[in-house]
Amino acid sequence: MKKHTIVALLQDRPGVLSRVIGLIRRRGYNIESLAVGHSETAGVSRLTLVVESEDVEQVVKQLYRLIEVIKVSDVTDDPTVEREMTMIKLHAPPAARHEIISMCSVFGARIVDVGSNTMIIEMTGTPGKVENFIEVVRPYGIKEMMRTGRIAMVRGARGHNASEYVEPATNGVAVPALN
């Protein structure tokens, strides 16, 4: 099954993420990666979803049935910039540190914490590059690892700015209260 990257704009209300996930679960699709956070417009969240599906058009249509889903695009075949971040707590006794530090500089990774026998490394890149980096440092001994979901943005002028779809909230009380 093909992996699809879907980008969606959501109204930022309680339960909206639950609705999106529930809908995808209902169709029996596996979520490979999910990232969600604020967009450039107040009250609108932007979500990047990677899902394996034979019928992604139906997923997109079903997502539109959710009241709080503003815009959905399958950007799989579009020119995009995709990034993912990982933090790795690596076994790093003093003898290995020099080698690890030079490895990090090759990948543009940052060392954000050093303990007596460990280091926490932060690395951001394309999902493939993150994967490579993990394989390179694995032999030293990964004690903990955490990866964010993938985030994707379409290159160039095309794309979706949330403000195209959303009017600034006008009714003083009710709308902020729902957030």
């Binding site: 339960g15 639950s18 609705r19 529930g22 809908l23 209902r26 009241i67 009710a174 709308v175 729902l178």
Partner: peptide, 24 residues
Amino acid sequence: ITGITMPITKHNYLVKNVDELPYV
């Protein structure tokens, strides 16, 4: 009940704040 009915409603709400009621 909002969790239970999420997949079987067109939409649902949990209201905890009296000010939201007219809008909701």
